[in-house]
């Protein structure tokens, strides 16, 4: 792993980014919060967080021009939770288009299960180096009402009423539905793997 790498967490006014910053600090790295296009382009790693509502989050991205910056990034990018959902084609939440990086459309859980899903669930069918050292069936922390149906960019799967994609990968872009920063040692391993990419 590069000892001194520039890690930028995209700060566009959405949600709890302090926890991601602290999680990276616990791994021995410093992350910077930024919404500056040049700074984001210059980073070695980019983390795209998001908590909140998809429609208003997309509106914030558009108002800062970040909606056109993110899809053209060349370094490893990790979308977390709503961040991952916004990297898809569209979302039923707020009926919004997304950044179109992953070929998937975000849907709402149906009423057969409690919504939001809150808590620890298992990840299976793990692919790519993002899951190095992580065993099939380990637990991660999830909190969400919308999900990505199984799709060809899937690198990890979870079951909650339906089987759905909890991680996605295409080129330099990665996305995880769960919160690695809150998923105990499993989450730390996944974040560490991302920083090694």
């Amino acid at each position: 792993m590069k000892e001194k790498q520039k890690i930028v967490i995209i700060d566009y006014g959405a949600g709890n980014i302090q926890s991601i910053k602290f999680a990276i600090k616990r791994l021995g790295f410093e992350a910077k919060l930024s919404n500056d296009a040049a700074e984001i382009r210059n980073a070695d790693k980019v983390i795209f967080p998001g908590v909140g509502e998809a429609g208003s989050a997309m509106a914030m991205l558009r108002s800062t021009g970040l909606d056109t910056v993110i899809p053209t990034l060349k370094q490893p990018v990790l979308g977390i939770c709503l961040g991952m959902q916004l990297m898809c084609n569209s979302s039923e939440e707020g009926n919004t288009t997304g950044l179109g990086i992953f070929d998937a459309d975000v849907k709402r859980f149906n009423k057969q299960v409690k919504v939001p899903q809150i808590g620890w669930n298992q990840i299976t069918n793990l692919e790519t180096h993002l899951f190095d050292g992580v065993n099939e069936g380990e637990y991660v922390y999830l909190v969400h009402s919308y999900y990505v149906p199984e799709c060809k960019d899937e690198i990890c799967r979870t079951e909650y009423g339906v089987k759905y994609s909890t991680a996605l990968h295409r080129d330099n872009f990665y996305g995880v539905q769960f919160h690695p920063e809150k998923s105990s040692k499993t989450g730390e391993q996944i974040l560490k793997n991302f920083l090694k990419l």
Binding site: Q18, F22, A23, Y141, E181
Partner: peptide, 11 residues
Amino acid sequence: VLDVAEQLNIP
């Protein structure tokens, strides 16, 4: 809250 968040890796 800030002190706890710095230490804690669960929600």
